[in-house]
Design a protein around this nucleic acid. Structure first.
Lengths: 207, 207
DNA sequence: CATCGCATTGCACCAAAGGGCAATACCGGC
DNA sequence: GCCGGTATTGCCCTTTGGTGCAATGCGATG
């Protein structure tokens, strides 16, 4: 399941560690890209395939924890495996609270790191799968007109057409028209379908 | 929001630490119960109100991490705040991966511990709220007859009454009867309501 | 000004959902 | 053997939902 389609990003200021890790991951057929600093990584393009980030905690400039925070702020959620020579417990707690996959101290066994990366890739695949699933959903929702969205929200709230009509100050026939447009544009096969889509989209009444 | 209705369980083999923590939490009006060992805590009754567990990592007999594992196995999910004098990073990672709220090293500031306990109580309240929400749901679902559950699953899948009838080899009128019973017993106000209940219950077609 | 998208609505018709009333049938207990 | 819960179904009527057809009005865009 992990092949050349999966990438490992290594960010470490130590050249020997970078080359060591690069060889390690390439030995298991993973694509590796190395960076000498957090800043350099941030300037790089975002990955378009499942990836995992190997991060040294201590580095000149932005630390590993800083980078983790920056990525979260940029909504760039890539699984992170920390590696450190001189970490402490507060750092570990912070990293894990922020969702790190693993926090390893040197020296570590290669298998530990490979397992962590496997876990990171699994998380990213799952996240991408869910993302793709809701991406189409959001795209279709974007095509709804404001009025259609209002009708959408009220319909999935369980209101009858006539109740929606009263709520929006329109005729029942109009609501039926909007409702049909919603079903069509959202590509929903049934009301049940539409309700599930609304749940994933977080559609609710505004007021 | 945290009052005498919230409990703190302290498990620590050090008597002075137990009394110190007891006084600390009681000073902020929290109910405190102390235990000298993990085994003693496991023998105690489960809490019926929001609680938080303060756990020493190193203890004779079952360690704090052992207790965390046992509680998870027993499905007794109570938020845990670890406190330790001689912890290491692997221990920290294990504890946090298993869902610990916080992992503090001695000496710690009282405020850090109080904040952690507040967070633990918040998590427990939220978990209990969600639990209560789905408890009633499950209870109502239990009252459905086997046939009604089949109809339930097919209806929320978006099938028309006639399609459900064909699928189950019954008449449409029969399906309507079952469907009405389902709506009644589940106390659903609308189909949208029923679909959301099905989502929370994980109701799907068996075959 | 003309066109287009969006919102709106009336009329008519058909399909689907919801129920009231009533009857049949099976099964496990008391 | 009678009783209650469950499953089943028919007949009939009302309410809702879904659509086709057609038309009007408004604001933005070219």
């Amino acid at each position: 399941m992990t092949g050349a389609t999966h990438t490992v990003f290594v960010v470490d200021d130590d050249p020997s560690m970078r080359s060591y890790l690069k060889r390690l991951f390439e030995s298991v057929s993973l694509h590796v890209v190395t960076f000498t600093s957090a800043e350099e990584f941030l300037r790089s393009a975002r990955p378009d395939a499942p990836a995992c980030l190997i991060l040294d905690v201590q580095m000149p400039g932005l630390s590993g924890l800083d980078l983790q925070r920056e990525l979260a702020r940029a909504d760039l959620l890539i699984p992170i495996v920390f590696v450190t020579g001189h970490g402490d417990i507060p750092m570990t707690v912070q990293a894990m609270k922020a969702g790190a996959v693993e926090f390893l101290t040197k020296p570590f066994r290669n298998q530990e790191l490979l397992d962590a990366v496997r876990e990171g890739h699994a998380r990213d695949r799952e996240a991408r799968r869910r993302g793709a699933e809701t991406a189409g959903l959001h795209g279709r929702y974007e095509r709804l007109t404001p009025r259609e969205r209002e009708v959408f929200a009220l319909v999935v709230a369980g209101l009858l057409n006539k109740q929606v009509a009263a709520q929006l100050g329109a005729s029942e026939r109009t609501i039926k028209a909007h409702r049909a447009a919603v079903m069509q544009k959202m590509e929903a096969d049934s009301l049940a379908d539409l309700v599930r889509m609304a749940e994933k989209l977080g559609v609710v009444q505004n007021p």
